[in-house]
């Protein structure tokens, strides 16, 4: 019995909890991608770097707050800085739209042209981030490190396995839940949100109904700024900030958005968790859990890790291909432009 409990604790500690946090981060990222796809109808390659920019802006504000001696108690100061980071990112995205994307929208350029344009934006944003904050690792998490650490948990429960809940994990889950709730409330209950969905559903009819496309687009960029910055900051708090890793998140984020069905917000969330859990499950070394569960003579000698962690991209990729083969519009019905 204790063995089973220990196994469950180990599983939660190394798979379920980290997977949930990572899934929430991916889901927020994928929501941004899927919204841009639904409204502006292109795959935004600059999204990873938008996340990086938003995080950088938040970090700079955090540093400013810290130097003024402001902190947020046991919560990371970055959470106070987040709204400012979002605002700065929002301005950047609106500016980018003005300077870059709007021209192609007016021309009714093909989606692939916009994708290439977004590659140019990606370069600029990536350069901007490197230019301002450099390429090194930036750790900006402060506040309490653990809600409960492994030792405390062991003493509390008397189990061999410890369960550590890092505060960043909890913050990630709560913040993501709030962000998603706000987003869905906005999309489903407000006039502007509904007009965005209408625009995404049927652009021509939205125009005939008097919906102003430029306003819809602007609101979309602002929401994307909020989602991307939040996702980036949560990821950065959880791991650390490095310009390059954000670019690499592009693949799992796109995989999540496509798996869920591009253009479908609900799908993006589901896709985020599907990708995250698959990655963690496949790259986790199951030895410990199996040792608790299996009789002594069956215990594995190897680590029982299906794939080395470096292959986590392969997991996103494999799931993507499988879904595309079986259900090309994704798990939830997405758009097919």
């Amino acid at each position: 019995m204790t063995d089973i409990l220990n196994a469950i604790v180990a599983l939660s500690n190394f798979v379920l909890i980290p997977g949930a946090a990572y899934g929430a981060q991916l889901a927020l990222g994928a929501l941004g991608v899927t919204l841009i796809y639904g409204i502006l109808r292109f795959s935004n390659f600059a999204h990873g770097d938008t996340m990086a920019f938003g995080t950088m802006a938040t970090i700079l504000v955090t540093w400013g707050l810290q130097s003024m001696g402001i902190s947020f108690g046991f919560l990371p100061t970055a959470l106070i800085a987040l709204p400012v980071g979002i605002a700065i990112t929002g301005l950047l995205l609106l500016g980018t739209d003005r300077a870059v994307y709007r021209f192609y929208r007016k021309q009714k350029a093909a989606p692939v042209v916009l994708v290439i344009v977004s590659i140019g934006v990606m370069f600029v944003m990536n350069g901007l981030v490197r230019f301002i904050i450099g390429v090194g690792d930036v750790n900006f998490a402060d506040g309490a490190r653990f809600v409960i650490n492994a030792r405390q948990f062991r003493e509390m429960t008397g189990l061999d396995e410890g369960l550590a809940i890092r505060s960043t994990t909890l913050i990630t889950l709560i913040t993501a839940a709030i962000a998603v709730a706000l987003l869905f409330w906005f999309l489903n209950k407000t006039r502007t949100g509904k007009s965005m969905r209408a625009f995404s559903d049927n652009e021509d009819l939205a125009l005939l109904s008097g919906i102003n496309p430029e306003r819809v687009v602007a609101v979309t960029w602002l929401i994307v700024a909020a989602l991307a910055t939040t996702a980036g900051v949560l990821y950065g708090l959880d791991k650390s900030f490095k310009a390059f890793t954000y670019f690499q998140l592009l693949l799992p984020i796109f995989a999540a958005a496509i798996v869920g069905g591009l253009g479908n917000p609900l799908g993006a969330i589901a896709g985020g968790f599907v990708i995250a859990f698959s990655e963690v499950l496949v790259t986790y070394a199951w030895k410990k859990v199996l040792e608790y569960l299996l009789p002594e003579n069956l215990e594995p000698s190897s680590l029982v890790q299906l794939l080395s962690t470096d292959y986590k991209f392969a997991v996103s990729f494999a799931i993507l291909i499988i879904v595309l083969l079986f259900k090309p519009t994704g798990l939830f019905k997405g758009q097919s432009v």
């Binding site: 006039r191 509904k194 969905r197 009819l205 005939l208 109904s209």
Partner: peptide, 23 residues
């Protein structure tokens, strides 16, 4: 009422009507 794609398919019936009255 256009000949094709004359509704917002993923929105509810009532939301379709609301969008009609957007202005």
């Amino acid at each position: 009422v256009p000949q094709t794609s004359n509704i917002f398919p993923s929105m509810t019936v009532e939301e379709n009507l609301e969008m009609g009255a957007f202005l």
